[in-house]
């Protein structure tokens, strides 16, 4: 678990009554969640349960059907209002498959947004930032000439992370950061998530179903089940939970040992 002081009253991201449907499929029914400034919140839940959908609402890639999303005190989206320009530069996101720009090399991937948003920077300064970001993710500067197609899955995610922190965001969102990686590479990514929090002081939201990763990086864990957050707690609280559905998920049991249903469908 990371070692960072967090004020429980200082809320960075606030989700209230979030609802979202795709066609007839109701993915989010009523999501209420507070993410504190500087903490790493891990959202766990089954694949296809809507975890990434929550993340995409936080960064304004989706507009809710109901409820509000507030980031750093500014409401960015409701069903009738949608303005994410103010928060875009505060946020970075690591996509599940990295989502690197295939036509650009590693250095260009990291430098592209920087050049566009800071035209006042000289090319030398841009390259200095690229080197700094590559160092932060423990990659040597020579990596900048590699094309995304030449990188392994883990490397792609590290470069994508370097790109996400290029604009020095205050919030980092991670969509399944360890999916598809071997346990050792997964641990490298976990260490980087902790590093980002400790070195850059970012607020992190990690969506995953990898419990090893969740327990390692989280300050708090939220469990998504059938469109609702059914439990939020520290790593210890989640490990010692009495909620049968959370227990079932974190222990990876196929069958549940009780008939108690924690949420109404």
């Amino acid at each position: 678990m990371p070692n960072v002081k967090i004020d429980p009253n200082d809320i960075m991201i606030e989700l209230r009554g979030l609802k979202k449907s795709f066609g007839k499929q109701n993915v989010l029914l009523d999501i209420n969640l507070d993410i504190r400034r500087g903490e790493t919140m891990v959202i766990i839940g089954q694949s296809g349960g809507g975890k990434s959908v929550i993340l995409k609402h936080m960064i304004g890639l989706l507009q809710p059907d109901g409820g509000t999303v507030t980031v750093d005190g500014t409401t960015i989206s409701t069903p009738k209002f949608f303005d994410t320009r103010t928060i875009r530069k505060k946020m970075g996101m690591l996509f599940q498959m990295g989502a690197l720009f295939d036509s650009m090399d590693t250095g260009e991937n990291i430098a592209f947004a920087l050049r566009e948003h800071h035209p006042e920077l000289s090319e030398k300064e841009v390259q200095a930032v690229v080197t700094e970001k590559l160092k932060l993710i423990n990659l040597i500067p020579e990596f900048r000439t590699k094309m995304p197609s030449e990188l392994s899955g883990g490397m792609r995610k590290r470069v994508a992370l370097a790109r996400a922190i290029a604009l020095s965001p205050e919030i980092l969102l991670y969509d399944e950061p360890t999916t598809g990686l071997d346990p050792i590479t997964s641990d490298v990514i976990n260490d980087l998530i902790i590093d980002m929090q400790e070195k850059l002081g970012v607020t992190s939201v990690v969506v995953t179903h990898d419990m090893v990763s969740a327990f390692k990086v989280a300050d708090r864990i939220a469990m998504l089940y059938k469109g609702r957050i059914i439990e939020v707690g520290t790593v210890e609280e989640i490990k010692n939970t009495t909620n049968p559905f959370v227990k079932q998920f974190i222990t990876g049991q196929r069958k549940i040992s009780t008939e108690i249903h924690p949420v109404e469908d």
């Binding site: 890639l61 875009r88 530069k89 946020m91 996101m93 996509f95 498959m97 989502a99 690197l100 720009f101």
Partner: peptide, 13 residues
């Protein structure tokens, strides 16, 4: 499909 379009948006591009 590879979320590159979302990546542009997220980077404010």
């Amino acid at each position: 499909e590879k979320e590159e379009l979302d990546a542009y948006t997220v980077l404010g591009l």
